[in-house]
Amino acid sequence: MTDKEACFDPRALRNAYGAFMTGVTVVTTRDGDGNPLGFTANSFSSVSLDPPLVSICLANTSRNYAAFSTAGGFAVNILSEGQKEVSNTFARPVDDRFAAVDWQFGPQGSPVFDGVSAWFDCSMFKTVEAGDHLILIGQVQAFETSTAPGLGYAQGAYVTPAAEAKAVNNKADLLISALIERDGKILLTDNGHGRLTLPEMPVGKAGATATLKKLIDGIGITAQPGFIYSVYEDEAREHQHISFLCQAAEGLPSRGVFTDLTETTLMDIADPAMCTMLERFARESRMGNFGVYYGNQIRGEVRPIVSDK
């Protein structure tokens, strides 16, 4: 048993799945004969941090209903951006779905996959009938995360960090910022006038992906780009703003400081639109659920990044 399995940290759980909540998941268990079962879903959601609970919705018409509704537990495998075919396989009636992925039985007994962004092996905490679906609530008993960006699904298509960046490469006056998190703190830098800001940089001819990499490299730490957290038109500064949520590894940045998003800190944020975004991030971090903001610096909407598929 690894340290992660033996010493479960609720903050680590929030960090682990918070960054990948755009994600497509494969939910797995074993049938009465011990055979592995699984299906693709993107209805994965956090329920509680103490105890650590997560939920999945299963249609009453699913051929897996009987096995999952009576199972002693299940695992949630959050697919990485290179696992589109795994998602497709587990979404179709394939004879041997598990031949498409390397896997093993997790510590709690459900199948967990190699190469995923994260997996959570859960005991069954409770099942709840909800209309034409059954809500499976699992208590996380073991988990493992990686730095691999998660695979997303939106409006009938897969979404990856690379694809999201490509979609915004052609925007005029585009500004990229990096919302870099580590241990619940955010990296903030001086804007040159005694106020605080996120690391940011205008997008050049190289495009958004290269700009984000250059921005992170200039900070002097290792950080893994995740999903686009906020998209808004800042009419006051006359640009389109794209903020990427990133997870940082250990190490001291060459500029900026990792800071708690307290009320005092937020008052020192130079840009009001950025301050509003960080206030939302502070709230969502406490809840463990994230959304993507679309709008301008004054008004917009937060679209949940977890939805029933």
Rank of each mutant, 00 (worst) to 15 (best):
D9N: 12
A249V: 01
S46Q: 14
A273K: 04
A100P: 14
H133L: 00
S254R: 13
Y232S: 00
E5F: 06
I186A: 07
G291A: 14
L261G: 02
T209S: 14
S43C: 04
K205Y: 09
P202R: 03
Q108D: 05
C122W: 11
S146T: 15
P52H: 05
S285G: 02
K126G: 00
S243Q: 12
M277K: 10
A163Y: 12
D114V: 04
I56L: 04
T209I: 07
E263C: 02
T211Q: 09
A75C: 04
R11Q: 07
P149Y: 14
K205L: 03
S177V: 03
L151Y: 14
A100K: 15
R286G: 05
E200S: 04
S48E: 06
M274C: 06
L37A: 06
T197G: 05
F258H: 01
I305Y: 10
Y65E: 05
S45R: 08
T127H: 07
C246I: 08
L37V: 10
R14M: 05
N296C: 01
R303E: 06
W119C: 00
L196T: 09
M267W: 06
V76D: 06
G152C: 01
A91G: 01
Y232R: 03
S177G: 08
N42Y: 12
T147D: 13
M201P: 06
L175I: 11
A16P: 14
M277S: 05
A6S: 10
S48D: 11
P202I: 01
F74V: 00
G288D: 08
R280W: 15
L179I: 07
E263I: 12
F143M: 11
N64M: 03
G204M: 02
M124I: 01
Q141W: 01
G138V: 03
C57I: 01
I137G: 08
G34K: 12
Q247T: 04
M124K: 11
L252I: 10
P253W: 04
R182D: 00
F44M: 00
I221T: 08
I180V: 15
A99Y: 07
P111V: 05
M267N: 15
C122N: 07
V302T: 09
K214G: 12
V47T: 15
D50I: 13
G207I: 06
V26P: 02
I216D: 08
V306C: 08
G184S: 00
P111Y: 08
Y158A: 02
G138C: 02
S117H: 10
D260G: 00
Q108T: 11
L188M: 12
R97G: 06
S87N: 09
A75V: 02
N77A: 01
T61C: 08
G226Q: 09
V168H: 13
V306F: 15
I216W: 14
L179H: 14
V26I: 03
E200V: 00
G220H: 10
D268W: 09
F105K: 04
T147M: 07
A66S: 11
